[in-house]
């Protein structure tokens, strides 16, 4: 059987921007203040009274072709056979090229440890058969996690049966995080107001 490839589908028809994922991640992974492995961007658009607000939960895309791993000089950043992209804290020298090269700004330098850090898909939980903390707490059940290589998994079936989107497909990273119903403006990086 083929290797697993873990992935996530975020169904934005259900997400209501509660940020439970954002806080669950801080707690589960002891993430310091000022840096985020997981966050929810909010974008407002329209003219009164026809106004909409869109939510875009963000995390590491655990790309199939991750620029961070390509650019890491020490092998600290690596991709596991199951697709999870991780940082080996003992090997990381803090050169920050992975941070610079991530098209999604999913990485950051830990202020105390001075090594690169990011979402791990909660590998410590996933390895023991439990979904990531953000998926566990998602009030809306907007986050679905599983094996993209398993034709029977819910993530695979959602990806196959819905017009899913990924962030910045042009960056050529092949993300493993897919969105359903994402708004173009929310997905764009522009700061133009």
């Amino acid at each position: 059987m083929a290797d697993k490839r873990f992935g996530m589908v975020i169904d934005l028809r259900r997400c209501h921007g509660c940020k439970a994922c954002q806080v669950a991640c801080k707690s589960e992974n002891d993430v310091p203040l000022g840096v985020w492995r997981s966050w929810v961007k909010e974008v407002e658009q329209g003219t009164y009274p026809n106004v909409k607000r869109h939510f875009l939960p963000r995390l590491c895309n655990h790309c199939e072709h991750p620029a961070c791993v390509r650019n890491c000089p020490t092998g600290a950043s690596y991709k596991r056979p199951d697709g999870v992209v991780l940082v080996d804290r003992n090997k990381c020298i803090g050169c920050r090229y992975c941070i610079a090269s991530c098209p999604y700004q999913s990485r950051f330098l830990l202020a105390d440890e001075k090594v690169a850090d990011k979402c791990t898909f909660c590998a410590h939980r996933v390895d023991q058969g439990i979904v990531p903390a953000c998926v566990n707490t998602c009030i809306a059940r907007a986050r679905i996690f599983g094996d993209l290589n398993d034709p029977n998994s819910e993530v695979r079936q959602l990806v196959d049966s819905h017009p899913v989107q990924v962030l910045k497909p042009e960056a050529g990273q092949s993300p493993s995080v897919f969105y359903i119903g994402a708004d173009d403006n929310a997905m764009r990086g522009s700061e133009a107001g």
Binding site: R14, Q128, Q157
Partner: peptide, 30 residues
């Protein structure tokens, strides 16, 4: 409701998926 929104999920889906919760693992000691 979840089925409805998630569309045509295969009814024959294999029971392999991960647990949703009720258990937590230490990040450091595993």
């Amino acid at each position: 409701a979840t089925f409805a929104i998630n569309g045509s999920l295969s009814g024959a889906a294999r029971a392999m998926e991960l647990k949703l919760g009720g258990k937590d693992i230490s990040r450091l000691t595993r």
